[in-house]
Design a protein around this nucleic acid. Structure first.
Lengths: 340, 340
DNA sequence: CCTGGCACTCGACTGTAACGAGTGCCAGTC
DNA sequence: GACTGGCACTCGTTACAGTCGAGTGCCAGG
């Protein structure tokens, strides 16, 4: 356990060099590139200890050392400070996000920005419905027995569903239904709506009971049960950077995982608050991502998260830089959404 | 130009074998696997001619032959019949598409289905706005100077935009505005709306002119100018099938192209009718897709296309099967949308 | 016009040797 | 006791030569 300061410095140097060059790093190269003030031989001894403790390993006997997942973990937890963003990056973020016209646009711009800045695969969850509240419900008559239900959330998200009514309704009926659902539901959080929706049926006029019953079913499905949480993805081409060295030769598992919205949502969307999470290699619960790292955070106005965003990349990534960028983008997006 | 029947048969055999095995195919293997009724030597002579004409080539001197883009083209145009779908595939399509609850759902299911059946990357364009007509326009007051404009198209597509008004409006004003835009625009094709939108301002009451002016600007942006055509993508992991042999080693250009929505739209969305297009390798206008082939078609009720869908894969693909699947899926989706 | 035979080409694979980066260990020094 | 220089050792990488075999082009004969 004796990890004195110099051994930690050696580990830090190894991580930094390896991330930068992609080559296993040897003792000689280390002392040349960093002011450690000791000889290669000493560094070798330190390396031996670090290897015994499981922080680094040798790909083969006559090669340099490479950090293990555990090594990266220690590096992230204790050896790195979050890099401040460069002014250029700040400008890029601002420039990219102003001028977004609607929620879709915001999300798309965000995910592309994040991919571009981190040079990795970016994932952005749409603001979660469960954590939004209802701004307005609209009922559009399609025919006498069909309505289009449109729900507008305070985050700007819009959901629609077709409702097949059991019996024809008049235009006045639709107006009544519309007024009633809006009176009862507008302003409440979607996660709190189920009891309110239940009550709707009882409070409606007798001749509307049938219509309201089906309507409330659809409402429940749309608003609550159906976890129609969506995500946007960008930068998959970045997976091909660094040849096939990362991800041990096959992008397949990574690409597969990225396409599974459910999986990604679990990964990115779990954040309840706006703290940053870093999952390194094996720490990942998803088998397909065992060769990758995930940096994610929640975003939203204040400290509550409306949704999550993050990046997926090789374990060999620039953690300080990536963490800084992910946080900064999340903060900007949070502010942007708060303005609506 | 003397391509007699046997030479064509040889070309067909080469394409089929190469697609199946991924190995360059030699004269001996050919006569063994196909009943050509001639000796390897004869086949070799035919091959020499086919090579001279540019339909096949040798990767290296002592290897078998591989079809060129031109060879595939001839194969597709003259040597293959579209395979009928297997009953299993038909069932899969039906099973996959019933139960879709809204447009998003339809598109997502379709793209995943297509990716799964063809084992390639699938692309589906959302029903084009320009070719839809307006079913309903809704104005939701957010504050006295802000409206949420929601447009519902007959395809089920919903678009929303925030409108910042130059001056406050009352609830009655909003009602008037809503009535007016719906009266004038509902039922017309989006591509025909510009003159109608122009007229809106003149026909509105004096005190609404200002509001209507900004509203009409946003309408034009949303409905027409902004080609906010969207696409859905699935099956990128399929690019990794066949090792790195296809796409000459790097998926990067392909992945990059796939992420450029504008590019993909141009590719997939150009279809005005429901005919099938096949672009093979070099025929592709997009440089990044020069190593790939694209099979696409329009879909929609009847012969007019609401949007396009297709797949992107290696030039070495099963064209007859892929074409059949793409067409079948497009037909089903067209029917499905017609039901709404 | 087709066929069998034959010489030829050239990539894939194998084995060997030289090279060198990097290590572990040890004796010596401060 | 901690650090250092030196040295033997390991082992992957590269280069080179040789063999093998799939596949070809060509030609003489049917």
């Amino acid at each position: 356990m004796g990890l004195d300061d110099r051994k930690l410095a050696v580990l830090r140097a190894i991580v930094e060099d390896y991330v930068a060059t992609q080559d296993p790093v040897g003792s000689k190269a280390l002392v040349e590139r960093h002011q450690l003030g000791v000889s290669p031989a000493t560094v070798r001894n330190d390396m031996a200890v670090l290897e015994e403790e499981g922080y680094i390993r040798q790909p083969h006997t006559s090669a340099g050392r490479v950090p293990t997942d555990r090594g990266y973990r220690l590096f992230v937890d204790r050896l790195s400070r979050v890099k401040p963003l460069s002014p250029a990056e700040r400008r890029a973020i601002e420039r990219f996000l102003v001028g977004a016209v609607d929620l879709d646009d915001v999300v798309h711009r965000t995910v592309r920005l994040l991919a571009q800045l981190t040079r990795q695969v970016a994932v952005v969850q749409y603001p979660s419905l469960a954590r939004s509240s209802v701004r307005h419900l609209e009922l559009v008559p399609i025919s006498t027995t069909r309505l289009m239900l449109v729900m507008i959330a305070d985050t700007g998200r819009v959901e629609q569903r077709l409702v097949e009514l059991p019996a024809p309704v008049s235009a006045d009926d639709v107006t009544d239904l519309r007024r009633l659902v809006n009176e009862k539901l507008v302003g409440s959080r979607l996660s709190e709506t189920p009891p309110l929706v239940q009550a709707l049926v009882e409070e409606s006029a007798p001749h509307l009971r049938g219509a309201m019953t089906t309507l409330s079913t659809v409402l429940l499905e749309t608003l609550v049960e159906r976890h129609e949480e969506r995500i946007a993805l960008a930068g998959t081409a970045n997976l091909t950077r660094g040849g096939l060295l990362d991800f041990q030769g096959s992008l397949r598992p990574i690409l597969e995982a990225l396409e599974e919205e459910v999986v990604m949502l679990k990964l990115i969307g779990e954040a309840e608050s706006t703290t940053t999470r870093v999952l390194i290699g094996d720490e990942n619960e998803i088998d397909n991502l065992r060769a990758a790292s995930v940096v994610s955070t929640g975003y939203g106005p204040g400290a509550t998260a409306l949704g999550g965003l993050g990046v997926v990349g090789p374990t060999r990534m620039d953690y300080p830089g990536t963490i800084a960028t992910v946080r900064a983008v999340a903060r900007y997006v949070g502010e942007l959404l708060a303005q609506n």
